[in-house]
């Protein structure tokens, strides 16, 4: 027991108690898998795939990617300057830091689905409210993540920029952004991937794209189209992950 201390056993005990309590609340019961055959029956209805609507579903998938891409891109563009205000070492004033952090926390605490429902009342049905909902939530998430990267950046280049007489904001930008850029890209592509899944959910409230089709096909028991929807979604997520990885490799 060289590696462990008494306090760690106590922490472990607390975690175990919390897990047991959560399992009770969520009716966690692996014995329920004995009805596994039902799932097999259900999945067998998904095949053969109905590829007749593939061109249309492909177009809907492109719409989903567009929603996710714009939602992540505009989120990043707005989050980037805000994250400098939300980082302790670059905000310039404690009040600015606190106000920006609070604003980002607020945006992060509201799920995209809720933003979508609220925006429907003004923007109506369609992909546009879905884009805005994703942008708003992404500002909160990316703003926080990037501000933490800024706080962890090496102070040396910032000091060098002060020493050459650069204006504070220019010095901070040039000293920090190149350091954190690969990680910013990682976060962006991760949020892009998440946005694809989010835009599926937003399809339930009329956000358009492959998510809306998936919802309609499920509701109308067209399981052979559901399988095509799921396949396209998987391809999209894998593609974004692959392209993101390649771009990051190039940047590093």
């Amino acid at each position: 027991m060289v590696w462990f201390k008494k306090r760690q056993f106590f922490v472990f005990l607390i975690i175990a108690v919390l897990a047991a309590y959560s399992m009770r609340l969520t009716e966690f019961d692996l014995s329920k898998f004995q009805d596994f055959e039902n799932m097999g029956d259900f999945l067998s209805k998904w095949f053969p795939m109905n590829t007749e609507s593939l061109p249309f579903l492909f177009t809907e998938s492109v719409l989903t990617i567009s929603i996710a891409f714009l939602g992540s891109l505009f989120g990043l563009i707005i989050a980037l300057p805000l994250s400098f205000l939300a980082a302790r070492n670059t905000s310039g004033h404690r009040l600015i830091f606190a106000a920006t952090r609070f604003y980002l926390s607020f945006l992060r605490s509201v799920p995209e689905f809720v933003f979508g429902l609220i925006l429907l009342t003004t923007l109506g049905l369609g992909p546009f409210p879905a884009v805005i909902a994703i942008v708003l939530h992404n500002i909160g998430v990316l703003g926080k993540l990037i501000s933490e990267l800024i706080e962890a950046a090496d102070k040396g280049p910032m000091e060098a920029m002060s020493a050459v007489g650069a204006k504070r904001w220019i010095g901070n930008l040039f000293a920090i952004l190149p350091q954190i850029w690969p990680n910013v890209l990682s976060q962006f592509f991760y949020r892009f991937e998440v946005a694809i899944r989010t835009s599926l959910i937003l399809g339930l409230i009329g956000g358009g794209g492959i998510g809306q089709q998936l919802f309609i096909h499920f509701k109308t028991f067209q399981y052979q189209l559901v399988s095509v929807d799921v396949l396209l979604i998987m391809i999209m997520v894998i593609l974004v992950d692959y392209i993101g990885g390649k771009i990051r490799e190039k940047v590093i």
């Binding site: 040396g156 280049p157 000091e159 060098a160 050459v164 007489g165 850029w181």
Partner: peptide
């Protein structure tokens, strides 16, 4: 520790010396 700006080239780093001007 030199305090150069990483991921920027030699000449780009040198030009940052003019930022104050």
């Amino acid at each position: 520790h030199f305090n150069l700006i990483p991921r920027m080239s030699v000449v780009q780093n040198i030009l940052t010396g003019l930022f104050g001007y």
